[in-house]
Design a binder for these strands. Sequence first.
DNA 1: GTGGTCTAGACCACA
DNA 2: GTGGTCTAGACCACG
Lengths: 128, 128, 128, 128
Amino acid sequence: MFLMIEIDSDKPIYMQIRDQVIEGIASGQLPAGTSLPSIRQLAADFGINLHTVNKAYDLLEREGFIQLRRKTGAVVQVSGTLSDTWNERLQALMAEAYAKDVSSAEILQHCQLILGEFAAQHKLSNNS
Amino acid sequence: MFLMIEIDSDKPIYMQIRDQVIEGIASGQLPAGTSLPSIRQLAADFGINLHTVNKAYDLLEREGFIQLRRKTGAVVQVSGTLSDTWNERLQALMAEAYAKDVSSAEILQHCQLILGEFAAQHKLSNNS
Amino acid sequence: MFLMIEIDSDKPIYMQIRDQVIEGIASGQLPAGTSLPSIRQLAADFGINLHTVNKAYDLLEREGFIQLRRKTGAVVQVSGTLSDTWNERLQALMAEAYAKDVSSAEILQHCQLILGEFAAQHKLSNNS
Amino acid sequence: MFLMIEIDSDKPIYMQIRDQVIEGIASGQLPAGTSLPSIRQLAADFGINLHTVNKAYDLLEREGFIQLRRKTGAVVQVSGTLSDTWNERLQALMAEAYAKDVSSAEILQHCQLILGEFAAQHKLSNNS
DNA sequence: GTGGTCTAGACCACA
DNA sequence: GTGGTCTAGACCACG
């Protein structure tokens, strides 16, 4: 599995699942149409509560990243628009760095670095 | 005042205060040395509790954005380094957009737009 | 329990908790991984307020001595670096003794004595 | 003057005065018998409140570092024993470092360094 | 008047 | 059950 749950993290488990699924999609490891493990499967694999996984999947569906089907389980779908709060969160993050006197160039470099990694992994996944 | 509190938001009030103060610093509205309203003052102005404001100010101080003084209140101070989780949060945000099939160029454009606004406002504040 | 709260002390209660937990870690009574009592539990045990304990735990977490988990409570974790003011506080303390005409040798002996006790207790805890 | 007041510090002003007078004594800059500036003088020099200086002097007298006389002002006297809380504060400080996995040798080295500086300055003052 | 500390009691998110 | 957040009201230290 591609998931890495840190039970000690300050980030809620369902958010860890959500974020990592999204990163998996971004990096091309989970292209559209891919089936995600069933809720029971995933919960069993990591020894976490069904409700926790359910909450993550439900959130991912509401955000348009996956589609939940009876029996078939969860399927990745790439569609939808950026969430309402995305821009706000980005602005908060940019402000945090800018207020620390980090230059715009340096901040953009950080962004580019991350995006570059996604692109590189994407390419790799497609070729394999 | 520069603050805009949404009592119904899912984001904790003390985080709203923190984020908006940081944005104020980033945009130059709150240059180093500026005095922030006292804890009691701000609490009264927005009809929120003293402890909530205190928590926000305490957090801002620990993160190096302001300095709390016994008698003078809170004063803006730019120093310190980026928080440990800044890069993680940025990566999660970038992934979210990339997974939505938004191109790298478009994402970077979003960042640049925000940073550009900060720079423009900064310039404006300095000239006035 | 290992704690000893003096309600009448000039030292704030949350600082008493903090210092004693740190001493517990130093002496090996609280090795990494040990679970601390929950906030509510500790507050109830000593008849103090939940928020006071919360403040102590929050401080200990920020200083890297413990880790707060949603469900499991507080767990000891040794990491992080010395606080910024440690050296200043040490210097003030050394000056106080030196100004009383206590010899350097005697002062160092005090330090060694304390450190020796920590080491001895540490050894004891490990062997048991 | 030998004093350096930081109005922004988290440490109360009267404590800054106290600590620096003690350091002055420890380093030999203020040998026994030296007259300290009058309360009014010191308050005027630093633009601080009379009560604040008074509080510092009062504390220093109660701790046995100086002697307050009518008209004559404050005179340094080296005598008295270590304060009741000195050992406790030292123990807390040692614990803080030891709990961070700093070795006893390294901690002692810190202490020796500070004491060595006092001794060196002391010698210098006596020779001059 | 400022921030710092403590108490009392409440609701929510997480698992 | 855990910690996280918010409210309300109190007293103290500092200057």
